[in-house]
Amino acid sequence: MGQLIFNGLVTGLLIALPALSLALVFSVLRFANYAIGSMLTVGAYLVYAFNAGLGWPLPLAALAGGAVGAGLALAIDRLVYEPLKGRGGVTLLVASIGVGIALENAVRFIAGSSTRGFAVEVARPLRLHGLRINQEQITTIATVLLALAVVWIVFRFTRLGRAMRAVADNADLAAVRGIPRRQVVCAVWVISSVLATLAGVLVGLDGNVDPQMGWNYILPVFTAAILGGIGNPMAAVAGAVVLGITEELATLVLAPHYRTMVAFAVMALLLLVRPTGLFAAQGTAK
């Protein structure tokens, strides 16, 4: 039981990064980014290229992959989302579906469909108070907590963070207050893609790197973001942890391959009962 909750916590933290990324884009650009899964996949492959291809150590490769991924996200914004600005959330959503298809298949075209793994040494799991803890789980926890702390600090205490929250809250008023929307949007894409890349690395460490990997996470990621109240970035993290633990506990009664169904059931239930999300703050919601 303790082991399950711990595993669920780690799974949840893993989902938290892309869920935060999704909610961040939604809160500022006002559309559901269905390319989030492909961004995760592309990030994992970029890091793989630096790690296995050039032989760089994983942390360095992750930095380089994050930078290239951010550049790619900015280019996509310039080419796709910026020209479609103001055409409504559904049009942007469909465009992101197109972007997702294109990205995933660009990966397949270049890297092929076979599964790969990062070049890391296999370490023995730790034992702590009866819990079995993998090396990857420790890496996941440390990376995610660090990333979340950085994002939180940026959000709370920096000029950029205030600008992002202001645009998310009321874009017209932000314009009147002299906040340059374009710069905020670019910052959002950089953060969003770096989070997706990090998630890609962690998913790849946990399992394999393959072109489907991001796709498999779309449903839990959206569920986590909806749990938190989509458009509420930090609550998406809480949603992810709740979902991770629920999924893990559900393996007590359901076969493990049905975890996606658990995510779907949680989402369906939530949408019927409390569509604003579990953690949406009362009163300040728009």
Binding site: R159, R162, D169, R177, I179, A281, T284
Partner: peptide
């Protein structure tokens, strides 16, 4: 000062004042 929706509701009052100051 717009007629409606003229504060960032999810930001604190001091953050509202700060964000209004730092981009101009």
């Amino acid at each position: 000062v717009p007629q409606e929706a003229n504060v960032f509701r999810s930001l604190s009052v001091s953050e509202n004042l700060k964000v209004a100051f730092e981009f101009i």
